[in-house]
Design a protein around this nucleic acid. Structure first.
Length: 737
DNA sequence: TACCTTGACTCAGAAAATTAGCC
DNA sequence: GGGCTAATTTTCTGAGTCAAGGT
């Protein structure tokens, strides 16, 4: 089970109702940070100016007017965002370097919204963009479908749909009966009446000709010359360029998903009832554009028109259309590194930090409510306990036409098993149909409550039958403004991460520190149940890496023997790094590595010989001498010789003791680093670290840690993350979540 | 419902490893 | 033999995709 070392309740306030405590604290200006062992981050009360309550946008008319008269954001005052005592000395030269890397196209006048206040109820005052990019029109290839052994010529529409399926022949989707049924229904619906009479069963359809044709195209593309590939890339870039950015309040920012999703088969996850349904082609007539009122409306593709043009500056999307499978809206947004997304991220993490001031009281009140006489209250308290301790998602109700996945509020009796010693076994499919399995020892009262909630219910009945996410969130908001179930996940992820980072060896190497960082990250990923499928090549690459380490150890062993031949061992009396034998390098391994090394050398010699013979046949006699020389060495390396060699003294490098010593130490470092990489990779095979890093862990923790331990931020965040989190770069080494 | 965040997966191309050739 | 560079192959990374959540 994942546990978190979260703060304990302040005993002096234990018996006072939560609402009174909050009121009392607010009136006294008491900051509950005192309750925490982690470092305080501010002396002034948490600024509220930056964290405005999220106003529910008013119901908007289709053509609501943008407020062009609003004050430009850039003119707003300097801020308190990374509070003064933290940020004043944090602007190092290094920071400036980082910023220049992050800004748009190398310009230095980047909009640093985090250095001022921002009002996020109005998302923009002017917004200009080029609309969306449509996928190319379908071009028929004429490859037929085989039905019951006979060729069937398809028209363009039929062929396109058949092609969607043919593309997926090697995937697991085609093993899913729901996927197949939905596809086949969709396919038959576009068939001509003649083909409809003929094509009756999917099992009799053979898409391999099309599949092979697509493979051929793929190979051709792969085998293009570098120049051809580059030309295509440039052409694509040229075509896409204008869609890639938008001008928001006069600033150029990147657009995220400017490409309209191409038609295809819906790849619903898990047992999604609509998996395999046809996603129809989206036309300009389906797309609504959101743009500044005075800005130029992008031209739709020739012969087409947009569905609608609106000017709604209370939302961030640039375009929207309706998904033809689930009838839900899809949007085009700015990229993750944009100011709007950055502000949203910042707000999210500040909200989670705000919870730190409330969480002790909320937990205490919740502990009381676990024993409340009212059933709804007990259910709510138990659910909140699970959300807090296990970082479960809220768990909204889901429709019949969606995959059967659950979160906390939608858990059913069948999803938990009550075992001995107050243990609860959770086993259900969560978001994306990822299995959540956890055996947890819980508080006695939780076990008792769950038992009570299950009593008399069938296995498919809801565990928390009186609770909904809406009612839970309404309750949470009454405890802290803007608090919802989701905030607990962010709070606990960031808090856990910060706590785990305390295990960083401050005198360790950079590699050791990174391992500690990844381990902390991994604890969060485990807590949030972020899984990934084991990479196909995992076992092979692990074996390879292990063998490589052994080979290095063997080489180090040879050098050590040589050194000890030249220098007396007692010289290295207090130098275990020189004298110590590698624990896993026993006689068998030494013998095996010896053979491997020799085989490698043999191979090299043979290759050299082949090469030389080629040269010889091509050119003059003068090479003959060399060839003979090599042939001799080959003779010596015959299997017979190999066996003999095992008992013979090893070859020496004839290096000086100083050089030998240096080489041994270099090898030692290489071995250590490789071992760390191996451990890291193995521990990571089923856990996806990126999701928590991107969405749940406050990036300021990482920037602070990177400064505190002198680990380059590039080792922790890739370019995309550095761009996304540029607002967090200026925290100092002692910043605390 | 509308709007936005969270999430796993894919695949192109970057990076690393390996090989070849030269001095 | 060793050090270096360039070419080629293999492995890994991350940007992009779009589905699936929460509020």
């Amino acid at each position: 089970m994942s546990t978190k070392d979260t703060p304990s309740v302040d005993s002096s306030e234990e018996d006072i109702p939560l609402s009174k405590i909050i009121k009392r604290r607010k009136s006294k200006g008491v900051d509950s940070d005192e309750d925490f062992t982690i470092r305080r981050r501010r002396s002034t009360p948490r600024k509220k100016a930056n964290i405005k309550e999220t106003k529910k946008p008013k119901a908007k008319t289709k053509n609501s007017v943008e407020s062009d008269d609003d004050i430009p954001l850039s003119s707003l005052t300097k801020n308190k965002m990374n509070n003064k005592n933290e940020s004043t000395n944090a602007k190092t030269k290094e920071d400036k370097g980082e910023q220049s890397e992050n800004d748009n196209g190398g310009e230095n006048n980047e909009y640093k919204w985090w250095e001022g206040d921002f009002d996020d109820s109005i998302k923009w005052t002017t917004l200009e963009h080029s609309g969306v990019l449509f996928p190319p029109e379908y071009e028929p290839h004429g490859v037929p479908l085989k039905y019951d052994g006979e060729m069937v010529k398809l028209n363009a529409e039929e062929e396109e749909i058949a092609g969607f399926y043919a593309h997926m022949l090697e995937t697991d989707y085609v093993k899913n009966p729901i996927f197949n049924k939905n596809f086949f229904d969709g396919f038959r619906s576009v068939l001509t009446s003649e083909n409809k009479k003929r094509i009756l069963k999917l099992e009799k359809c053979d898409f391999t000709l099309m599949y092979e044709y697509f493979q051929k195209l793929r190979d051709e593309k792969k085998n293009m010359t570098k120049e051809e590939k580059e030309k295509i890339k440039q052409e694509k870039l040229k075509m896409e360029e204008k869609y890639m950015t938008a001008s928001i309040d006069g600033r150029i920012e990147k657009v995220g998903n400017f490409r309209i999703e191409p038609p295809g088969l819906f790849r619903g996850r898990g047992k999604h009832p609509k998996a395999g349904c046809i996603k129809k082609r989206i036309r300009p007539e389906d797309v609504t554009i959101n743009i500044g009122k005075t800005c130029k409306i992008p031209d739709p593709p020739a012969g087409h028109s947009w569905r609608d043009i609106i000017h709604n500056n209370q939302v961030t999307w640039l375009a929207t259309w309706e998904d033809t499978v689930n009838m839900t809206p899809k949007y085009v947004f700015l990229a993750a590194g944009s100011s709007l997304k950055g502000q949203s991220d910042f707000k999210k993490f500040e909200k989670a930090r705000e919870l730190k001031d409330y969480v002790l009281d909320i937990r205490r009140k919740n502990t009381e409510e676990l024993r409340d006489s009212d059933l709804l209250t007990r259910q709510r308290a138990t659910a909140l306990w699970l959300i807090d301790k296990l970082a479960l998602r809220a768990g909204n109700e889901k429709g019949e036409d969606e995959a059967d996945t659950v979160g906390c509020c939608s858990l059913r009796c069948e999803h938990i098993e009550l075992a001995e010693n107050n243990t609860v076994i959770f086993d259900f499919l969560g978001k994306d149909s990822i299995r959540y399995y956890n055996q947890v020892e819980v508080d006695k009262i939780i076990h008792k409550n769950l038992k009570e909630f299950k009593k008399g219910k069938k296995k498919d009945e809801p565990l928390f039958n009186l609770l909904t996410t809406a009612s839970l969130n309404k309750y949470l908001t009454s405890l802290m403004p803007g608090l919802t179930a989701k905030v607990f996940r962010t709070f606990n992820a960031s808090f856990t991460f910060q706590e785990e980072l305390k295990n960083t060896p401050s005198d360790g190497t950079v590699a050791e520190k990174i391992l500690a960082y990844n381990r902390a990250n991994r604890q969060v990923a485990i807590l949030c149940n972020h899984q990934r499928s084991i990479p196909k090549s995992h076992d092979t690459s692990m074996t390879k890496l292990k063998e490589k380490i052994l080979m290095l150890k063997y080489e180090k062993y040879l050098l050590r023997l040589e050194l000890l031949d030249l220098v007396e061992e007692k010289t290295f009396k207090n130098r275990p790094e020189i004298t110590e034998m590698e624990s896993d390098l026993d006689d068998d391994v030494i013998a095996r590595k010896k053979i491997e090394k020799e085989e490698l050398e043999l191979k090299k010699i043979e290759q050299k010989k082949i090469k030389l013979e080629q040269t010889k046949s091509e050119s003059q006699e003068s090479k003959k001498v060399d060839v003979e020389k090599d042939s001799n060495s080959d003779e010596e390396s015959s299997p017979k010789r190999k066996k003999k060699d095992l008992e013979e003294p090893r070859k020496k490098t004839k290096l000086s003791p100083e050089r030998l010593e240096k080489k041994i130490l270099t090898l030692k470092n290489r071995i250590e680093n490789m071992k760390l990489a191996l451990t890291d990779r193995d521990e990571n095979k089923t856990t996806a670290l990126s999701t928590s890093k991107t969405n749940y862990i406050d990036p300021r923790i990482s920037f602070a840690w990177s400064k505190l331990h002198s680990v380059p931020i590039e080792k922790l965040f890739n370019k995309g993350l550095r761009d996304k989190f540029k607002w967090a770069t200026s925290v100092d080494a002692n910043w605390s979540f």
